[in-house]
Design a protein around this nucleic acid. Structure first.
Length: 649
RNA sequence: GCCGAUGUAGCUCAGGCGGUAGAGCGGGUCAUUCGUAAUGACCAGGUCGGGGGUUCGAAUCCCUCCAUCGGCACCA
């Protein structure tokens, strides 16, 4: 190790320092105020604790609270420690585990026999402020594994023992102290707890979480917090959450009278007329899009004998999540067990297998708006976003290996068009590769993953890796959309499958006259109509584009003498294919405008004495205060033109 | 499925240390005929999620089941 090292600052100036100098000392060398304001450093690009020694030549920047990224990271991380300390001070019997930074905040998992209550959160917050006010110094040391394990054993912190044991050889075991309170942590951290803003954080919720995500290990109690640099940022975030909750599709579904759920059929939506209108419009649109892109639509049975599911491998992996179907023994002596189909692929393969297919017919694209039913775990159900009964916009592309690339590009293009039409211009793409439990040997998986990866790259589609999350029969691309409060949901998917064709005996005759297994591309664009509509409602806050709006226009009378005229206007709109309704109630126009605006009806056509006299309507557009007075013909043709679905416009 | 919370009128919610329930919106009726985000009055609506227990008496306390919400786990 050299005795002196060269430190270079962002302005390009550099100086020699003794090896092992800390960023805190460097900051102090610049100015006392910087030493006080400093929160951390970046040393050769690595986020660095002010107290860690620097042991080689380095470029360094000193961070203060003005450096947003570093500041938020530290604030949230230190708040996690301060919260854990507060909890252990209040309830010393609590064992601590882990507490990472997450988006907007942090969580910490605790093991404690008694449950935390919502009231406890305020108590913990108060204690945290006390710790912040104490401005206790933060320091760290690197310990040997043996010393750390002994330390935690003695204190009964068994989870920490397990964590220390799991740290790979050669990685430092760093021990941190916030005042006298100790935690195992990679760091970095702030200089002292007093650097934390005491008014810009909040404990949000308590939840259960399995230790190490393993359902066979103990259930811990997780406390979530959010933290920011300034009180205003916190307030803004809370306000945003509140606004987001108003967009929740479950809430809008109720207030807009689109659908409901009830105890007798958990996870199975009852679609009301207006909700079903959205559904039907979307389905017609998808049918046209797919037809125009070379898909043939089919329909397959809802109830299928278990032998088919055994053959496909779904029985083995998912039979606990399948609805089994049988009939009264007095009526049937067959004794067969069938299942409601949880997915469509084996059925589509039956259609493929029903006759001999030539390579000339490939790629063969078979689509179905397939009704599927899955017994999802009760805790997974979530409005329309996770249901037990749903319809997939499913299709299977039977093709040769050489066609994977072109078909992938074609699919991604189609999906992008559809998403853009539906208001989603940006979306996440995840690449999920082989899971631990899977069908097919590794050579098949190598081939499938390589093919999908190459095809995705060739299509110019960037993605993030999602290791081990593929389907049991093949790797998949997931097209992910986000709900009102930022939760991710897989909607579209593309899966490359070399396994199912062999299992289900799918064959085509190649150019060489020999039979081959085709490759199956499993794909969906929306995923399920249910989930997609849920996201769609949230994305538009219920104000759907005109072509999807259940009620496109309301003709509202101002005086009852306009009733007859309103009826004729209404008839004209309906003749033009507009979903219009009349409001001839004995109410003031103010009331009607308010009511239909709240119901998010895109157009209100008000008619009173003037309109009757001139053959006009007063057209009011949702979200706008201006009113167009125009002849009925003009209004009808304007609405009709605007109401055309994007693929027919 | 697991941890925790919640469940009162169509909706949003108040109340309830045990003595059989309230508001606002919505709905109905009547009056009002009004010009772009709430006209007024009156009326009807609830076995307080289901079942069981304690009690003279349970919406309120206890047990249990169901559903929902927030997470975790799961997601073909």
């Amino acid at each position: 190790m050299p005795s002196t090292i060269t430190i270079t600052f962002p302005d390009g100036s550099s100086r020699d320092h003794p090896c092992g100098v800390t960023a805190r000392e460097l900051a102090a060398g610049i100015s006392p105020s910087l030493a006080k304001k400093a929160i951390s450093a970046h040393v050769n690009g690595v986020h660095w604790d002010l107290g860690w020694p620097i042991e080689g030549d380095a470029g360094i920047t000193i961070n203060t609270m003005a450096d947003e990224h570093a500041a938020l990271e530290l604030i949230r991380h230190d708040l996690a420690h301060v919260m854990a300390r507060a909890v252990q001070e209040l309830w010393p019997e609590t064992r601590v585990t882990i507490g990472p930074v997450i988006e907007n905040g942090w969580y910490y998992d605790f093991d404690r026999a008694e449950s935390f209550t919502p009231d406890d959160l305020a108590i913990i917050e108060k204690r945290m402020r006390k710790i912040i006010n104490a401005a206790d110094p933060v320091r760290s040391e690197i310990w040997s594994r043996g010393k750390a394990i002994a330390f935690y054993r003695e204190r009964g912190e068994n989870y920490k023992v397990e964590l220390v044991e799991a740290i790979p050889d050669g990685e430092a075991i760093r021990m941190y102290w916030h005042g006298r309170w100790q935690d195992l942590c990679r760091g970095p951290h702030l200089q002292n707890t007093g650097q934390l803003p005491g008014d810009s954080f909040r404990l949000q919720s308590i939840a259960g979480a399995f230790w190490r995500g393993d359902p066979d290990r103990p259930m811990l109690q997780r406390i979530y917090g959010i933290g920011f640099r300034r009180r205003n940022d916190l307030k803004q975030h809370l306000k945003m959450l509140e606004e987001a909750q108003k967009r929740d599709h479950r809430r809008l579904g109720k207030s807009m009278d689109l659908f409901h759920f009830q105890e007798e059929a958990p996870g199975m939506p009852f679609w009301h007329p207006d909700g079903w209108t959205i559904y039907s419009e979307l389905r017609s649109y998808m049918a046209r899009k797919q037809k125009a892109n070379g898909y043939r639509e089919v329909n397959t049975p809802l109830v299928v004998d278990r032998t088919l599911w055994e053959q496909s491998g779904h029985w083995d992996k998912f039979h606990e999540h399948m609805y089994l179907v049988n009939v009264d023994e007095k009526i049937s002596s067959e004794g067969r067990i069938s299942a409601l189909k949880p997915m469509n692929c084996p059925c589509h393969v039956q259609i493929f297998n029903a006759r001999q297919t030539s390579y000339r017919e490939l790629p063969m694209r078979i689509a179905e708006f397939g009704s599927c039913t899955r017994y999802e775990p009760s805790g997974a159900l979530h409005g329309l976003l996770r249901v037990r009964g749903f319809v997939q916009d499913d299709a299977h592309i039977f093709c040769e290996e050489s066609q994977i690339e072109a078909e992938t590009a074609r699919f991604i293009a189609l999906l992008s068009e559809v998403y853009a039409d539906l208001g989603f211009t940006s979306f996440k793409v995840k690449f999920s590769d082989r899971p631990d439990i899977r069908a097919g040997d590794d050579t098949v998986w190598d081939k499938a993953e390589e093919a999908l990866e190459a095809a995705t790259n060739a299509a110019g589609c960037s993605y993030e890796l999602n290791p081990g999350e593929g389907a049991f029969y093949g790797p998949k691309l997931e097209f992910v959309l986000t709900d009102a409060i930022g939760r991710d949901w897989q909607c579209g998917t593309l899966q490359v499958d070399f396994v199912m064709p062999a299992r289900l005996g799918a064959l085509y005759v190649g150019q060489d006259g020999v039979r081959h297994h085709p490759v199956i591309l499993h794909r969906a664009i929306l995923g399920s109509f249910e989930r997609f509509i849920g996201i769609l409602i949230e994305n538009y806050s219920g104000s759907l584009p005109l072509w999807l709006a259940p009620k496109q226009a309301v003709v509202a009378t101002i005086v009852s003498t306009a009733d007859t005229y309103a009826e004729t206007v209404l008839a004209r709109l309906r003749d033009a294919g507009i979903r219009a309704e009349g409001d001839m109630r004995n109410e003031k126009i103010n009331y009607k405008v308010r009511m239909h605006s709240l119901a998010k009806v895109p157009y209100i056509l008000a008619v009173g004495e003037k309109e009757v006299e001139n053959g006009t309507v007063s057209l009011r557009t949702l979200g706008s205060k201006t009113i167009d007075v125009l002849p009925v013909d003009a209004a009808v043709s304007r609405l009709a033109a605007r109401a055309r679905p994007p693929d027919t416009a």
